[in-house]
Write a protein that binds this DNA or RNA. Structure first.
Length: 584
DNA sequence: GCCGTTTTCGGCCCGACTGTTTTCAGTCG
């Protein structure tokens, strides 16, 4: 049976949305939103566990547990079906327009009978919307702009890979000002979510913030201004990505950074702890409350660690701030020490121009990897015959081996004689076993037949895992963020096979891939599977991507012990040898 | 609807900005 959590989470999220439009109590709405989050974050398949244990999951109470059981038994949730009957689908669609929330959606529906975006356009054109109480000409103009923008792109989120350079450019433009002490980007980009909705830039300045905001809004990267206040500016950049600026005093830097990094759900958790302690937490610091509950004396604000400590929490790395249990673990001192970039001593997936798609020579790639201070770097050029365009034959592989030997004399770093194998339709890989056993390391990946279904993909990958000459599975789902979704796999079965055989799973650090995803990393860690974090570099510049893989691994709570390339070259060779001994 | 250093009921995070208001509701993050 397939993992049921995602579908369940979607349904509870839909209940929350429909309840909100129906005007339900906001705390009840939030309870359903939290249930949806809790279900998505659960590290176990809710379809598989004891039903009595469902309400043990934080955020799932008696009522939610009942609905989960109902879904498992019947495939539907009665309450959701009823709500769908009450709220027209078109009204839900209206709330997808930025600036138009549930209140306005209900207003235009009840007063004007509008139940679609097309209907809204019409009602705006003939002036009926502007006549409604609380709405006016300016609101209509803003809604038109939102709709125009929505029509121009197919999604409101962009791959983080597309936003990173722009965010760094904005920061660099501001950093040159001498009235600015600190500047960084925060938000979902700092948490390394794989797609982002906007870029959040934070500035610390002890000067007048107004000129800083003016300068930000006047950047030539800015296409239009959405909001222009004294403390906050919002703009649309030339690439269509929204960017927000907040300017705070240097003393509030830590509190503002914590606040502005999010996630929203994480911040709510932390602020709830503050409330229970009679404190107030906002973007300016953590404060005692006076008799009226207003902010009194400031307790902490200068660093994020100070803020967490003030509510008795260990520091939480940004990538873990998603309200998936990290606050409770930070409270009782059991938050895992997640892997950091400094823990990595090697990179186990990279290409030279021996591969058809490699952009740099073996010598250049090796030199660049050595400059990172690595103990080892695996050159995993593509293989033949399964990848005709880019692969190399067994004979070329042996030729390359001579080149590696020659280079090795110049480097302390071990150059691992390795290969990225292709997983064929039946799970076979390119080289014969005797050729595989001559190699130091192999990673096997799917490059063809991406359109095939879950059963086929799972079977071919499981077969590759059983091969004693395969040491890791590369980019497990084949996704390209923002371009194509990954194919489906039975992750539970693959994790089990990896653990049984001593095969690693790769966290591909290319910002276009991030494959495994953070969620899948979490499940792999739970299952006790060994991970690798590798750049899959095709150029010298790609070797800088390691941080994205590390942050993705952090999102899945991976510790140094979970990651093979935190270990020295002897341990790495032992890992390879252990699988061969087990299966041969 | 969920939950507990406020523990089985009474609370539930916090602030900025806009537009339409004349004191604030709606939206967003």
């Amino acid at each position: 049976m397939a993992w049921v959590n995602e579908e369940l989470s979607r349904r509870f999220g839909e209940i929350a949305t429909l309840l909100k439009i129906s005007g339900a109590d906001r705390f009840r709405v939030r309870a359903y939103e939290r249930a949806a989050d809790a279900i998505l974050a659960a590290p176990v398949d809710l379809g598989e566990i004891e039903r009595a244990a469902l309400s043990d999951v934080k955020g799932i109470g008696e009522s939610t547990a009942k609905k989960i059981v109902e879904y498992l038994d019947t495939g539907t949730i009665g309450m959701l079906e009823e709500l769908r009957g009450e709220v027209p689908a078109g009204v839900v669609e209206l709330t997808r327009i930025p600036g138009l929330g549930p209140k306005t959606a209900v207003l235009v529906h009840s007063q004007l009978g509008v139940d679609s975006i097309a209907g809204l356009q019409e009602a705006m054109d003939d002036g009926r919307v502007a006549q409604l109480k609380g709405l006016g000409a300016k609101t209509v103009e803003n809604l038109r702009e939102s709709l125009r923008r929505m029509g121009a792109k197919d999604t409101d989120r962009v791959p983080a890979a597309d936003a990173i350079a722009l965010a760094e450019e904005i920061c660099a433009r501001l950093r040159i000002r001498d009235d600015i002490q600190q500047v960084t980007y925060a938000g979902s980009l700092r948490r390394m979510r794989e797609t982002i909705g906007d870029i959040d830039v934070l500035v610390a300045s002890d000067a007048d913030p107004v000129p800083i905001h003016e300068a930000f809004r006047a950047l030539d990267l800015v296409e239009s201004v959405i909001a222009a206040g004294e403390k906050k500016s919002s703009v649309i950049t030339v690439r269509g990505i929204q960017a927000d600026l907040r300017v705070v005093e240097p003393v509030a830097w830590g509190a503002a950074l914590q606040y502005f990094t999010g996630s929203k759900a994480h911040n709510v958790r932390v602020r709830e702890r503050a409330v229970r302690r009679g404190l107030l937490l906002n973007e300016y610091g953590i404060f005692h409350r006076d008799e009226e509950g207003q902010a009194g004396e400031r307790i902490a604000s200068e660093t994020e660690a100070d803020v967490y400590a003030a509510v008795d929490l260990a520091y939480v790395p940004p990538a873990m701030r998603e309200d998936t249990g990290e606050v409770d673990r930070a409270a009782d001192g059991t938050l895992p020490r997640v892997v950091e970039i400094a823990d990595l001593v090697g990179d186990l997936h990279g290409h030279s121009d021996w591969s058809g798609d490699g952009k740099a020579t073996l010598a250049d790639m090796v030199a660049a990897a050595a400059a990172k201070g690595y103990a080892y770097w695996a050159v995993t050029d593509h293989a033949l015959p399964l990848l005709p365009m880019n692969g190399i034959s067994a004979a070329q592989l042996r030729e390359r081996r001579e080149a590696i030997r020659a280079l090795q004399d110049d480097h302390e770093m071990a150059i691992l004689d390795a290969s990225e194998l292709n997983i064929g339709f039946d799970g076979e890989v390119d080289y014969d076993l005797d050729v595989l056993l001559e190699l130091d390391w192999t990673v096997a990946s799917v490059h063809t037949g991406l359109e095939k279904g879950e059963a086929v993909q799972t079977a071919r990958i499981l077969h590759a895992i059983e091969n004693p000459g395969v040491n890791a599975i590369g980019h497990l789902t084949g996704r390209k963020i923002g371009k194509r979704p990954g194919y489906e796999v039975d992750l539970a079965a693959i994790l089990e096979a990896c653990r049984e055989t001593g095969t690693a799973l790769e966290v591909n650090a290319s910002p276009r891939r991030l494959d495994l995803s953070g969620e899948m990393v979490r499940r792999a860690v739970e299952a006790g599977v060994t991970l690798t974090i590798s750049c899959d570099a095709h150029s010298v510049g790609d070797l800088d991507s390691m941080r994205y893989g590390v942050w993705t691994a952090q999102r899945g709570w991976a510790t140094p012990a979970d990651v093979l390339n935190t270990r020295g070259v002897d341990d790495l060779r032992a890992f390879v040898a252990a699988k061969r001994e087990r299966l041969l």
